[in-house]
Design a protein around this nucleic acid. Structure first.
Lengths: 74, 74
DNA sequence: CTGTATTTGTTCGTATGTATT
DNA sequence: AAATACATACGAACAAATACA
């Protein structure tokens, strides 16, 4: 799924995949995207990398993160 | 704040600035100095450079670093 | 009310790759 | 060649808040 050798770093690859899913309606508005742990498992990445990916989605205004809850599609 | 072109490398410049602050009592004994991330932001340097700066303070016996906690003034 | 599980927040440790001087 | 610097990544540990049985 993720290519660690690609020019695009893993955290961006993951962010883009998640953004695609949001755009496609796979994660509907107000729904919660996968937790950091789930992203770690699905994409076989470290937690920090998962966090960075979600951070990108926040910066893009795609999700909102609620501590102890998760990140929700806007 | 930091001059990347100076003869003194950034990590030493940062270390010296922090040492000054400790000496001046800006960071009192037993208090925590800024985290690596905070140093990255304040001085606009990379994380490795921030780490190097703190390493210098350790070598000078000015601080003690506790994994997952931070570095504390001695 | 109490304990446990879940989830994000924070922070340092370590390593790799690339670029510049 | 060596030192310096930055970006990226994974690991580990602990805190804090929330949810739930």
């Amino acid at each position: 799924m993720i290519d660690p050798t690609a020019r695009k770093p893993p955290y961006l690859q993951v962010a883009d995949i998640l953004a695609e899913r949001i755009k496609a309606g796979q994660y509907p508005k107000d729904s919660r995207i996968p937790t950091e742990s789930e992203l770690v498992e699905e994409f076989e990445i470290g937690r920090n990398t998962a966090r960075r990916a979600v951070e990108v989605l926040r910066e893009r205004g795609l999700v909102e993160t609620v501590p102890t809850r998760g990140s929700y599609v806007l």
